[in-house]
Design a protein around this nucleic acid. Structure first.
Lengths: 151, 151
DNA sequence: CAGAATCCTAATAGATACTG
DNA sequence: CAGTATCTATTAGGATTCTG
């Protein structure tokens, strides 16, 4: 998704900021100050979380307010295939966003539920989603203006 | 990316919230109150913006602090091909995130620059990115705990 | 210079059948 | 029930060539 936000001008130094973007410089200082390891890990993490289904699954789990079985998830996450659901749940689990609990009965029962981290990540993303929905009408080439003209 | 955050239980009603998720209910009320059109448009928009290259391109433009020519973008967005850069720029332009200016000289010169909307979207996303980087060590299955146990 | 057009591949998703 | 295994279809993206 986001891919490396660090500036990679050889040394990794950030490009010079002009007046017009000065307001954002602390944000990009943060990008610049990440270590290579942080950058790589965050990048991999977000690449996984921003894939087609993960956030939808987190939302369904949050909505349910209780652990859900595999088959319930398959019903509620409309359009997902069983294979992809399995794959995605495994990834979410290994990232610590959900917990998988196996009850060794016959037939087997498996329940998935959010972790606090998973819930918090979802809330962060919904905040971004809300920001976008509120400005939906602005995302239009006909309303585009140059930064320099606007400041 | 995020895909439909609305609950689609037939009528579109939101699932009942249990105590444990009550804190998030206003956020999900927002999801629930979106119209179908808002949902579809936001979904399409985010699907485009969350693709492999768009945010990287916005960041390079922001970093530059000035309009950049096509060939400069091709250099600075490391790893992108000419075809994909062209495609992505067209999409960003039609969403009002960047402005393309053609100077009809010979040879032709084309400059791309951020719009205020593009800059703001980038900042929103970087905010999310920062939130994630700060919690990077928590994204680990070994640290996962159940929500009910944690609250 | 800034692209358009074409061809090609590599990764993903979907569908289906099978199993502890 | 909750998967795994296998195959096919789709598609994003890369490499190359060409042009106003």
């Amino acid at each position: 998704m986001f891919y490396c936000f660090r500036s990679k001008e050889g040394t990794g130094k950030i490009y010079t900021h002009r007046e017009v973007t000065e307001v954002t410089s602390d944000i990009f200082d943060f990008c610049c100050n990440m270590t290579d390891e942080q950058d790589a890990r965050a990048r991999a993490l977000i690449e996984r979380a921003a894939a087609k289904w993960p956030l939808r699954i987190l939302h369904v789990l949050s909505d349910a307010g209780a652990p859900l079985r595999f088959s319930r998830l398959l019903e509620r996450v409309e359009g997902i295939s069983q294979k992809v659901l399995t794959q995605t749940l495994r990834t979410l689990e290994s990232d610590g966003l959900i917990i998988r609990t196996l009850y060794p009965e016959i037939p087997p029962r498996v329940e998935y539920e959010l972790t606090p981290l998973g819930r918090d990540l979802l809330m962060q993303v919904v905040t971004l989603w809300r920001w976008i929905v509120e400005r939906l009408d602005d995302f239009d080439a006909r309303k585009a203006v140059k930064l320099t003209a606007a400041v």
